[in-house]
């Protein structure tokens, strides 16, 4: 089966580098499925799990935003942070989740920290979801 090269790159270095059969990611306009020989494309991503299909198995990478760049033979995901399911620090994500929830309850909705806490909560939930499936 035809494969496509996938790179997940963060400022702290590459996270994932492999040949896969299909990439499924959640863009801000909806889910995207990328197969080999896709037309060049750029799309921003939600805080979500990217699914990478390979030999009938599925690898999951939690990404915190960023965007996806597609070329016919290569997919690059540029995110400010990304972790493979096996590398997620579950305890830390749980702590982050609690902290974010606490802040959300304390603050008024128009406050800037409210937005920040909301994103933090999304990231924590995303990480926990990805690590659970492992």
């Amino acid at each position: 089966m035809k494969t496509i090269k996938v790179n997940v790159v963060t400022p702290d270095g590459p996270v994932y580098d492999s040949e896969v059969e299909m990439v499924i990611a959640k863009g801000i306009a909806g889910e995207l499925g990328i197969l080999p020989d896709h037309i060049p494309l750029v799309a921003p991503l939600e805080i979500s799990a990217v699914r990478l299909l390979k030999d009938g198995k599925e690898d999951l990478v939690a990404v915190s935003g960023g965007f996806l760049e597609v070329r016919p033979d290569q997919v690059t995901i540029l995110a400010q942070s990304a972790e493979k399911g096996s590398e997620i620090d579950v305890a830390r994500a749980l702590r982050a989740k609690e902290r974010a929830e606490q802040r959300l309850q304390e603050q008024r909705q128009d406050h800037i920290d409210f937005k920040r806490a909301e994103f933090a909560l999304q990231r924590a939930i995303n990480r926990l979801a990805v690590s659970d499936k492992k």
Binding site: G27, I28, A29, P40, L41, A43, G66, F67
Partner: peptide
Amino acid sequence: ASYEFEPSPEEILEVLLPQYAE
């Protein structure tokens, strides 16, 4: 490369440029 933009170039720049500057 010339890209397709999903959903639109404006919305991508919205995400991309701050990330680039950071």
